[in-house]
Design a protein around this nucleic acid. Structure first.
Lengths: 106, 106
DNA sequence: TGAGCATATGTCAGACTTGACATATCAATC
DNA sequence: GATTGATATGTCAAGTCTGACATATGCTCA
């Protein structure tokens, strides 16, 4: 995010947690911002789905990912402290295909 | 990236610049890591293509993005200091469609 | 009830990323 | 060869993200 300019916006996001579906209208986000958030939410759902399909615990996925159970929980809950980089790595580690990922984005 | 464990790997990446196409075999990356890098490279190319198609200078795109010309240059050159978050925001700002983005990823 | 496992949430030091700036390179025009 | 506009590269203070840890909640099975 724009570092100086958008700090307040980011703070609002953090406060609201953008977990609830159509946050974009509630907060005043630019289209780009809400698109990015939507992508993140979809990926977090994909990670959870793929992990469960493979009967992995969050701890097991964390190990594959070189991370920790608590971070995986944050990944799957759509926590705003999770970067897209980490989300995508988690998506791969969970065994989801690139195709599924592309679908989540389009 | 795994923070403690993979620092050396990240350092190698930084040194090599991962610009050259099939870096993955040269450095020993996990499949997840090389997949992420490939996605980043493709998106950086997409940004450049979309920006040029719209006759925008890097400075103009930087403004839309709330960033600076030098960062846009880094985005487009596949610099390893650029996060996927920023890449995706730049992709949107450049006017590329979500479809094109999905295509770049799959 | 309680032990055991899976998941959720809060916190933080340290590692990473960012916009901004300075400066360099390159091409086109004069 | 000087000017101009676009792009590239290096640096850094300030801000963000991360793994790890502590701890809480929830569930299942004896």
């Amino acid at each position: 995010m724009p570092l100086g300019a958008n700090r307040p916006k980011k703070r609002r996001l953090k406060a609201a947690g953008w977990r609830t579906g159509s946050v974009a209208e509630f907060l005043n986000l630019t289209p780009e911002e809400s698109a990015l958030i939507e992508i993140k939410l979809r990926l977090s759902q994909l990670v959870k789905k793929a992990r469960i399909r493979r009967h992995l615990s969050q701890t097991a996925l964390a190990e594959k990912l070189g991370s920790s159970q608590s971070r995986v929980a944050k990944i799957e809950s759509g926590d705003s402290s999770v970067s897209l980089d980490l989300l995508v790595r988690a998506t791969f580690a969970s065994g989801a295909t690139r195709k599924a990922m592309a679908r989540a984005i389009a």
